[in-house]
Amino acid sequence: MSKLIHVAAAAIFNESGELLLALRNSKQHQGGLWEFPGGKVEPGESAHDALTRELHEELGITIDLAASRPLIQVPYHYPDKSVLLDVFRVNRFSGDAYGREGQPLKWIRLSELPNYQFPAANKPIVNALLLPNAIAITPEYSTEALLEDGQMSESCLTELADQYGRFVAQAMLNGADAIMLRAKHLDNSVQLALYTQLAERFKSRPIIWNTSIEAANEAKVPVIHLSSDRLQQLDRQGLNGRDLFSGRWLGASCHSLEQIQQAERVGVDYITLSPVQQTPSHPDTAPLGWDEFTRLVSQTRLPVYALGGVSLDNIDTAIHVGGQGIAAISGFRC
């Protein structure tokens, strides 16, 4: 394997919320593609120092480290070279950015990001910028009191949807950027009906359905999350979930390095990693702890959500150690 090249890069935002992209010279490795500005970390240099130096040399700007935070670390192996991208989100800087080395620059809206072509190693950076930071996972609501003669009537379904809807509304008020419908105790048809109602009612937030690829494709659902069992089944069959899934975002639940590696082979876009801390629902399961979470995050190029005993109070910690954010159930109830 070739020597690993350590690179510090930045997703730079201006006061208007636009993102800066730079075009690689056609003679460079992966030339002609857009990239996030930055450069090599020199021996003995920290990633922060390298980023400050490189952005001044390349763009003529001085970044405000107090308004910068880690975005994602991406270890990536090309056939001819290996890189570790240490990527930061820069929200404030001084100076007017221009291509000091003659490279074309462009400020774009974040929603336009999928329209641009990047080197393969940059795909996780694009995903990290577009994915939410806080996911609220629905609790399990019992249906026993709602069933009429053991059947789920239309009125029962409406009442059940209202229960889930109240949780979603409260979670949004408490800061959830996205909602995951996890209702494995319900029939697939009931889950789909719930998903449809929630997606229609809460159009301002992505609704993620925890289900199978087959069910999601049939219903044309854009965002799904695979259980660790479904993830392992795909990996055992040698299938690429990203190729099979027709929607936009494919996530998966992971609990170990082995499962993280399975997620990478299957081609998911993001993962949850749990349990980070002790949870009342799984009192006998030993938590990973933040040190182990940090170590596992450093082993993958995927955006990672901390799950298990976490809340919005932990989101800065999760992001600081390289995670995408947090996912929680009880953390959004209060």
Rank of each mutant, 00 (worst) to 15 (best):
A22N: 01
N217E: 10
N122V: 04
I135A: 08
A178Q: 07
L307V: 01
W249A: 12
T317V: 05
A120T: 08
N133I: 00
R295Y: 03
H29S: 14
I319F: 01
L234H: 02
E200F: 07
F88P: 02
A263R: 08
A128E: 07
V126A: 08
W34S: 08
L296Q: 10
V190R: 05
P280E: 08
L250G: 07
M180W: 03
M152G: 11
K27C: 00
D313Q: 15
H56I: 04
Y76I: 03
L4G: 00
L231C: 11
C254A: 10
A67R: 14
N314Y: 08
P104E: 04
H282V: 02
P75D: 09
R92M: 07
A120K: 15
G325P: 10
L273K: 05
A176Q: 05
A306F: 06
K203C: 12
L21V: 09
N314F: 09
L33F: 13
I12E: 03
V190C: 01
V7H: 07
T279I: 03
G95L: 05
P43V: 04
E18G: 12
V268Y: 04
N122S: 15
Q197M: 14
R295C: 00
R248T: 15
E218I: 10
I179D: 10
V266A: 13
P222V: 10
V321N: 01
E42G: 03
L288Y: 02
S204R: 14
R92L: 09
N133Q: 15
Y98P: 00
P303A: 06
L4A: 07
D162I: 12
S311D: 07
I108F: 04
L302P: 11
R205P: 00
M1T: 10
D187R: 12
D229M: 11
A219I: 12
A306L: 06
W249Y: 15
A328Y: 03
R182Q: 11
A145M: 03
F93E: 05
E112T: 05
A97M: 06
D235L: 09
P75M: 10
E148R: 14
S142V: 06
F88K: 08
G39R: 08
V310W: 01
Q232M: 14
P222T: 07
A10Q: 13
N115L: 15
Y141T: 03
F118D: 14
L20G: 14
L65E: 13
I179R: 15
P79S: 02
G247Y: 07
T279W: 02
C254H: 11
